[in-house]
Design a protein around this nucleic acid. Structure first.
Ligand code: DUT
Ligand code: MG
Length: 276
DNA sequence: GTGCAGTGTGA
DNA sequence: TCACAC
DNA sequence: GCAC
């Protein structure tokens, strides 16, 4: 029956069948200590399968082992510090509070700045894994240097507690970090901020609203139509040989999200319909 | 059987 | 260039 | 797992 559901094929259906019949999946019995450690380590921000593999190979098993012998890079140290806090998601209302603080700070930097909370929040989800904020300036040029000023503003009152990207130059447009709402009883939360030229607002908005699955689907569709979609632009006349791009193509005029759907021949999707 | 998105940051 | 992230 |  469930095999008729999308993304449930024969292999998965058999597993579901086994669980329904026996209340158990044998395949899970063979999972060992190594698998446990791999999962533990891959949930650390900044670590993936490769790094986890080297840690397991060294015989490391616990988070305490990592602190001592993991040779953690800067991001992973932050990941370890907030390991448990980063595991869970925040209520939508909290994401909104965090977003509002960023909006206020942006307004203090320049009242003309436009600021939108994207990601799962914009898709209307009831919980959010982090807060994704898109920032730009409608005059088309004053976004330059804004990231630096915005972060300075947000650090003023200790709202940003840790950086996962370094601000080693003024030109950075993508910030990943950690924030903490003022007052008691709040957890540290992940925050992502991007500052983009206004000409890229629509493509950035599509990208940052997601979902990631929808982004990949739209980008694949673009590719099949000889186009290329990124957070910067939708290009036409792209010529590829496998992965490499032989001809860049030309950016199509895109003024809003609807334009992108239209060029791709898709019906427009409201943000809450993009939650694939 | 093959391919599966495109880009930014850190080291 | 690779690993990891969005 | 799915589209081709
Ligand atoms: O591999 C990825 C990951 C993310 N994104 C885009 C879509 C996504 O919606 C947005 C923000 O990323 P995030 O990881 O925050 O996802 P989310 O959709 O906001 O979910 P969550 O509630 O877990 O934060 O960036 C991609 O295009 N590709
Ligand atoms: Mg998010």
């Amino acid at each position: 029956e469930c095999k008729n559901l999308p993304f449930v094929g024969e292999r998965l259906a058999n597993k579901i069948w086994e669980i329904v019949q026996t209340g158990h999946l044998q395949r899970l019995d063979h999972l060992d200590a190594k698998t446990d450690a791999m999962e533990l380590f891959c949930n650390l921000w900044g670590a993936g399968p490769k790094t986890a593999e080297t840690w397991v190979a060294k015989g490391l098993k616990t988070l305490d082992d990592l602190k001592e012998h993991g040779n953690l890079n800067r991001q992973q140290q932050v990941g370890l510090k907030y390991y448990n806090e980063f595991l869970d998601r925040m209520p939508r209302s909290e994401a909104e509070e965090i977003g509002n603080i960023v909006k206020q700070a942006a307004c203090d930097v320049d009242p003309a700045l436009e600021c939108m909370i994207c990601g799962s929040f914009r898709r209307g989800k009831s919980t959010c894994g982090d807060v994704d904020v898109l920032v730009s300036h409608p005059d088309g040029r004053s976004h330059e240097g804004v990231m630096f000023l915005l972060l300075a503003e947000l650090k003023e009152n200790g709202f940003l507690t840790d950086d996962l990207t370094l601000m080693d130059n003024q030109k950075q447009r993508k910030y990943l970090g950690v924030c903490l709402l003022p007052g008691e009883g709040h957890k540290h939360r992940r925050i992502d901020i991007i500052v983009v030229p206004y000409s890229e607002w629509a493509c950035s908005l599509i990208y940052f609203t997601g979902s990631d699955y929808l982004n990949r689907s739209m980008r694949l569709l673009a590719r099949k139509k000889g186009m290329s979609l990124s957070e910067h632009s939708l290009n036409t006349g792209v010529v590829r040989k496998g992965q490499e791009r032989l001809v860049e193509g030309t950016p199509l005029p895109v003024f809003n999200e609807k334009d992108v759907f239209q060029y791709l021949g898709l019906d427009y999707l409201e943000p809450h319909e993009r939650d694939w």
